[in-house]
């Protein structure tokens, strides 16, 4: 799994208290999304955030390193803060038909693995399982791994997300769209 930080970093473990703070932060983020409090959710991101979900394909073991698309490759999301804000604006428009009426989501964020970089930032890998129920019987499931770059901030809830890389374990997405955030 490639790393998010631009330059090589020394990675060290984090103490129990920091781990607790990071877990609390990620659960809060999940709650804001499940509760559809998107304006508050958006405030958790740094202004220079890169929010990215590259595509993935089936490759032989020999070409396994090409399985997940690179920065110049195909992606489902490749957003900056301004476009994330645009998506949030769209969701609030009342005319965003893939989320109006809105989906019901439930996020399971597990296997939280934070490390401290020598820049003072934290790189956090988590496993996720997001369930979406829509309309009468529609049901989608999204699962994979997220790698976040977190920065401490003085204000609550204590961190900003500076990078997010989402990698699904599916190649062909078994859903009609990703009209939610992951």
């Amino acid at each position: 799994m490639s790393k998010l930080a631009a330059t090589p970093h020394t990675r060290t473990g984090v103490d129990v208290e920091t781990r607790y703070e990071i877990e609390r932060f990620l659960y809060l983020e999940a709650e804001l999304l499940d509760d559809q409090r998107f304006d508050e959710w958006l405030e958790l991101f740094d202004d220079d955030v890169h929010y990215w979900l590259p595509t993935r394909m089936t490759r032989t073991v020999r070409e396994r390193d090409l399985e997940v698309a690179g920065r110049d490759g195909a992606a489902f999301f490749d957003d900056d803060k301004a476009f994330l804000a645009g998506r949030v604006r769209r969701l609030a428009s009342g005319r965003s038909w893939s989320e109006e009426p809105p989906s019901r989501t439930r996020r399971l964020i597990t296997n939280i693995r934070p490390v401290r970089l020598d820049s003072g930032e934290f790189e956090v890998r988590v496993n996720f399982h997001v369930l979406r129920s829509r309309a009468e019987r529609h049901h989608d499931t999204f699962f994979g791994e997220r790698t976040d770059l977190l920065r401490r901030v003085p204000q609550e809830p204590g961190f900003h997300i500076a990078r997010r890389r989402i990698v699904l374990d599916t190649t062909t997405l078994l859903a009609p769209s990703i009209s939610i955030f992951l």
Partner: peptide, 26 residues
Amino acid sequence: QAVRTSTIRTFSAAGVFETDDGENWT
């Protein structure tokens, strides 16, 4: 990069145009 990101944002499966189409057809 400008073309790539703008097309991903509008016409990928998470694109702000594309998601509406699937909703109608399903």
